[in-house]
Design a protein around this nucleic acid. Structure first.
Lengths: 231, 231
DNA sequence: GTCAATGTTTTTGTATACAAGAGGGTTATC
DNA sequence: GATAACCCTCTTGTATACAAAAACATTGAC
């Protein structure tokens, strides 16, 4: 990870990460109320750092603070998810476009290595391993864009979409299709074809056509699992 | 403005806006230390809502909180500024691309009105008026993209770049050039030419070629003003 | 039986009190 | 005279206490 490790002597910072994780993994499902005193008891701190963590999450867009009424895990509907993926596709395309022009020889090596790691993970048949290798592949491209701010933004959005990107891998054949696309992306970037790199990456991330239906289906299934667990 | 007015019974919210304004207008120059007790006295509240406002600003990227050492107005170097404008150009291009396909007839009216308001502001010769009208023009395009998430992101980044966008208007002839570009953008969007809309907007926002030098010059001058004031 | 009004309770928002780390200054020693 | 160690102060981070608003329940009237 490339985040500059600030000397962390703030509880709120750690709490924010913990809560972010709990939200992303579905421990606190969309719409849950995050009660300050309950959280304070759970983490064995006072309400103050809890409040500060919740405010951070609110600015980051993960929760809604309704003044005097409580804070709730933000409910991203299908519509908003699609919007977020639309933006993600554009950010990744931009990364690819810049990377095609700016990538260094060391980064080319890293990119090819990341691609091979994805191939190996698929051979192994472990979805989690592929998920992880895939993330490294994309991170490598962010970095190769040589725009640190862009890389931060892409990584940020990637975090929010993590859980849903993972869902996509459940769709049959998605992994092998994904690998083919990765190959095209590597080819375009290493050959310096900015336009092709951008377009391949956009199509890779964008959810449209048939894949939109696959996506809605898998997300709906995921949400129903959540509902079932709650009852 | 399109922000959904949450019932504001939180001091921190109002304080965040006030401080954001003070930072953007240069009242607190880059690098300034924002002392909690001083701010508390200034706004006649306790440290608690001040701290919460500072945390919000920190997540928004306007200040840096160095744990146990204080919070400082974030000093974005030229390199990072250029990176941010690079991303902004891409986001605006995306807004334009989508708007060209999705804009409604009401929004077309609003866009043309916003453009005319910019023209009138230039006639009036008031730079602040043009700055404001210009912002509305861009906001209208964000909204016309019909991607709420994208609009939020664009608005967010716009806020961070506010002060520097304003500086660009100081460059001689920049305003009239800007107006010509606005005309091309309106033409492209209303005629449904997504590619042209995207490209015109990217070029409009992007800082490159001669304009890069103009930009560096004006930012440096701005920083030196700040230094002079501090000493 | 339903609806409204009022009082109670719970929870958030703000203020204050307390703890602890960072910075600066002074003093003593080499 | 310079440097290092120690202490004091100042500021942030956390806990707790208090205020106020919203939700809830109870009770009374229609």
């Amino acid at each position: 990870m490339m985040t500059k490790q600030q000397p962390r002597t703030r509880r709120a910072q750690a709490l924010r990460e913990a809560l972010e994780n709990d939200i992303v993994t579905g421990f606190y499902p969309a719409g849950s109320r995050l009660d300050e005193v309950t959280l304070a008891k759970r983490f064995e701190v006072s309400r103050t750092p809890i409040r500060e963590a919740l405010i951070e999450l609110s600015v980051a867009g993960l929760v809604d603070i309704k003044p005097r009424r409580g804070t709730f895990v933000r409910d991203v509907g299908i519509a908003r998810l699609v919007e977020m993926f639309e933006v993600m596709a554009d950010l990744e395309a931009m990364c690819g476009r810049l990377a095609a022009r700016r990538i260094t020889s060391d980064e080319v090596k890293a990119l090819k290595a990341a691609h091979e790691a994805c191939c190996n993970a698929q051979q192994g048949g472990d979805p989690d391993a592929y998920y992880h290798a895939n993330q490294i592949f994309h991170d490598t491209i962010y970095k190769a864009s040589h725009n640190g701010f862009l890389a931060e933004q892409a990584k940020h959005l990637q975090t929010q979409l993590k859980v849903y990107r993972r869902l996509q891998l459940r769709v049959p054949n998605r992994v092998s299709m994904s690998l083919t696309e990765h190959g095209n992306i590597v080819e375009a970037i290493t050959s310096g074809d900015a336009v092709a790199a951008a377009e391949h990456l956009r199509q890779h991330v964008l959810i449209q056509g048939e894949r939109f239906n696959d996506f809605v289906a898998s997300v709906s299934a995921h949400w129903q699992e959540g509902d079932a667990k709650r009852n």
